[in-house]
Deep mutational scan, measured.
Amino acid sequence: MEVRTIKVFTTVDNINLHTQVVDMSMTYGQQFGPTYLDGADVTKIKPHNSHEGKTFYVLPNDDTLRVEAFEYYHTTDPSFLGRYMSALNHTKKWKYPQVNGLTSIKWADNNCYLATALLTLQQIELKFNPPALQDAYYRARAGEAANFCALILAYCNKTVGELGDVRETMSYLFQHANLDSCKRVLNVVCKTCGQQQTTLKGVEAVMYMGTLSYEQFKKGVQIPCTCGKQATKYLVQQESPFVMMSAPPAQYELKHGTFTCASEYTGNYQCGHYKHITSKETLYCIDGALLTKSSEYKGPITDVFYKENSYTTTIK
């Protein structure tokens, strides 16, 4: 009895394709271990004539594949690729409408935090270190965002349907971005203890939790000093293409032309909904596939993004 075979390709990165001759009487799992086709788990399936010449994702289970996976995804987590594939199996079914010149995501599976993050990423200057993220990001900007969303979920250790947080998501993504040249110098002034300067680099240099107003941050924000008295913390120097200011959701007025974009969060910790506000020729609110415009805006804002380049204080 002759062994019926077909020729397929296996890959971990969709760049390096490895030619395989597979036995049609055995499952993919018996031949390769966990195997995925377009995100779908085909591990328990036997090869079919229609699979001839198709590319299958496999887990990096030998040295060659491990090197290829690390170079593309910059992670050695053995569960990463499987999590990416199972997320992709959902995100490829989502709709990605162009809204006001940006790629958004039609609401499904509690994905409003991903839509808000995706919209924000198209408006701030950011370059990702893992080629996987950078490639998928370019495709997302062009309207094909399924891979990018699935990668975000995998890097953030999230599953489809789980509630997510924009600030946490951005923080994970910033860790995989090139923020080497970003720098922030802060000064804390206390009447009792004097003053202390701190220099922050990388992710810490672009994120701040405690106030939404970048102007206020430049002037000074009140913080408790270690001595128990009130101290003032203010920005001395900022070198970065953008800054992200966050605070627990509270009524906040966004003035046209003073910011790049913002995240609105309605609801409580267990259950809520994100919308995205962007400042173009007027203010726009993007909620999944829905767009509304207004000249002014007041609502429960939790993150505001500002364009920056270089700032030095005039406070002496």
Rank of each mutant, 00 (worst) to 15 (best):
T5M: 14
I6H: 07
K7D: 14
V8T: 06
D13C: 02
I15M: 05
T19Q: 08
V21D: 12
S25V: 11
M26F: 14
Y28D: 06
G29V: 07
V42C: 12
T43K: 08
K44Q: 11
F56E: 05
P60H: 07
D62H: 10
D62E: 14
D63H: 14
T64F: 09
V67S: 14
T75R: 11
T76R: 11
D77C: 11
S79A: 10
W94E: 05
Y96D: 07
Y96C: 05
P97A: 13
N111D: 09
L114E: 07
A115G: 04
Q123P: 02
E125Y: 01
N129Y: 05
D135W: 08
Y137V: 04
Y138I: 14
E144Q: 11
A146H: 07
F148E: 03
A154P: 00
C156Y: 03
T159F: 09
E162T: 00
E162G: 05
D165R: 04
R167L: 00
H176V: 05
A177N: 07
S181Q: 15
R184P: 03
V185K: 01
L186S: 06
V188S: 04
K191T: 14
Q195P: 09
Q197C: 07
T199P: 04
V203I: 08
M207K: 06
M207P: 08
M207F: 02
M209F: 15
M209R: 11
T211H: 08
S213E: 05
Y214T: 00
Y214L: 07
E215T: 07
F217P: 01
K219W: 08
C227L: 02
K229W: 05
Q230D: 11
K233Q: 14
V236I: 07
V236R: 02
Q237H: 15
V243G: 00
V243W: 02
V243Y: 02
M244S: 08
A247T: 12
A247S: 14
A247V: 06
Y252M: 07
H256M: 13
G257N: 07
T260M: 13
T260G: 03
E264H: 05
Q270M: 09
Y274E: 00
I277A: 04
E281C: 11
Y284K: 07
S294W: 12
Y297M: 04
K298L: 12
D303Y: 00
V304K: 06
V304L: 02
I315L: 15
